[in-house]
């Protein structure tokens, strides 16, 4: 199958990309790695009239320490993040999670900005990012703004990114040697997770107390396991806290899992993730 026809704009700078988005409005889509968008277009589930290719914009791929944060360029490909030494030292959950996205070929093309912008409730890196907390830096016609990750994922393939904005950077706290784990449950290694759980210890207590915990595929978007985080902050045991992981979630039912099973997996994987994180 093949995408419907479209016009391709090759942006050479973020400014140019934003200008193209402004010009073409909701008929335009950003093309980064293309591994979320092109599959949809081939099935004709998406038919944008204009694609703005940001793959050729220089300087969008980097991982660097800036104060207490790690800044990751939106164009950083999954395999680059997977192999990145700075990320491994400063925020090790990210390279590990990046290494579990899709398969090697997908990781060679897909970008962190692309997966964040896509807003898929079952995607790996957004789950880990949400557990970390931090910000998404976006650029629009009025310049740059910063959106906390906790406010970025709004619903089913819906994010805080406006139609005329481009993600330029992701900023997350340095977790260093704090414990972490990403528990991904699939039938086959390269499937989307049926449920996944990211747990990250915060050196400073962090936004959610001692651990940030986020869930994939338990609601319309990736979500934090707030009840679990709060219980841990209150000093609850891992088992007690994990038993609350599905509270407030609204998982979908499909052929892989009904709601009851997904809720069970969320609790189970949260317990396992926290146990691993605590053991680290």
């Amino acid at each position: 199958m093949i995408p419907g026809p479209f016009e391709l704009v090759r942006a050479t700078s973020v400014d140019e990309a934003v200008a193209a988005l402004v010009e073409h409005g909701d008929d335009a889509k950003i093309l980064a790695g293309g591994h979320s968008l092109l599959p949809l277009m081939k099935l004709r589930l998406a038919m944008p009239g204009v694609l703005v290719d940001i793959g050729g914009i220089p300087g969008m791929s980097y991982v660097r320490v800036e104060g207490d944060e790690v800044a990751i360029g939106a164009g950083t490909r999954h395999h680059e993040l997977e192999k990145d030494a700075v990320a491994a030292a400063e925020v090790p959950i990210l390279p590990c999670t990046a290494g579990q996205v899709g398969d090697p070929q997908v990781r060679h093309r897909g970008t962190i900005g692309g997966t964040v912008a896509h807003g898929d409730p079952a995607s790996d890196l957004p789950t880990a990012l949400l557990a970390l907390g931090g910000d998404v830096v976006v650029q629009g016609p009025d310049g740059r703004r910063t959106v906390p990750l906790t406010e970025f994922f709004l619903g089913f393939f819906e994010t805080a990114l406006a139609e005329d904005e481009v993600i330029v950077e992701i900023r997350v706290p340095r977790t260093g040697s704090a414990g972490w784990a990403y528990e991904k449950f699939t039938r086959r290694a390269n499937d989307w997770p049926i449920v996944a759980v990211a747990a990250v210890g915060h050196r400073t207590g962090g936004v959610g107390g001692p651990y940030g915990v986020a869930l994939a595929n338990m609601a319309g978007s990736v979500v934090r396991a707030t009840a679990t985080e709060e219980a841990l902050a209150r000093g609850a045991s891992i088992a007690e806290a994990a038993a609350l992981a599905d509270e407030g979630t609204n998982p979908s039912a499909d052929m892989h899992a009904d709601q009851e099973y997904r809720r069970h997996l969320a609790r189970l994987l949260t317990r396992r993730a926290l146990e691993r994180a605590a053991a680290a």
């Binding site: 391709l8 093309l31 293309g34 591994h35 092109l38 090697p104 070929q105 060679h108 093309r109």
Partner: peptide, 8 residues
């Protein structure tokens, strides 16, 4: 390695 069906 890349999947050439998912690359323009």
């Amino acid at each position: 390695s890349v999947k050439s069906c998912t690359l323009l």
